[in-house]
Amino acid sequence: MLAFLVVTALFVVQARNLFVSVMLMGIFSLLVAGLFVELDAVDVAFTEAAVGAGISTVLFLGTLALVAAKERPAGPWKPRMVLPFLVVGATFALLVYGSLDMPRYGDPNAPIHGHVAPRYLEQSEREIGISNVVTSVLASYRGYDTLGEVIVVLTAALGVMLLIGRGRRFPRPRPRPNETDLE
């Protein structure tokens, strides 16, 4: 599964046609969703399949309909092109170094399993009365965070509306032809 992910990611970078890239990114999201199902995280997998593979792909296609579908070929090689490579390489090395002393995957003694997680798992059925612990944590124990997330969604939608949406009440002003003559 992880190997599939890496292969798909390489193809996304390789593809010059942006339409192909968008489709491959949809496939990538679907693979990630499958991975989440394998890790028993069905709620996250559900979100990833619906948002990552569905909505993002459609929005990317909507953007592609507005811009050209071909990537502009990169210019001739210049020495400053090494810099992004170095930054990415250094970040990768740092992340690998940071993951070295993380507890082994599935270790029951890992710190994350010893904090509030056991209490949620044991008490939520009695305290909240619903059987999906993910929902009870999201909506009740961590209700403030979820309220914040909803406000983020609202703000994002408002931002897009203000940036590229056209209100009927305020039509976009057209540049007058004689204004350019003044300069």
Binding site: D43, F46, A50, I55, I130, S131, N132, T135, S136, L138
Partner: peptide, 18 residues
């Protein structure tokens, strides 16, 4: 049905939007 099975308001909203 989100409090019994997987899913909830966010996923439902996405599907409704789809």
């Amino acid at each position: 049905h989100g409090e019994l099975g997987p899913g909830g308001g966010f996923q439902a909203g996405v599907i409704f939007g789809v």
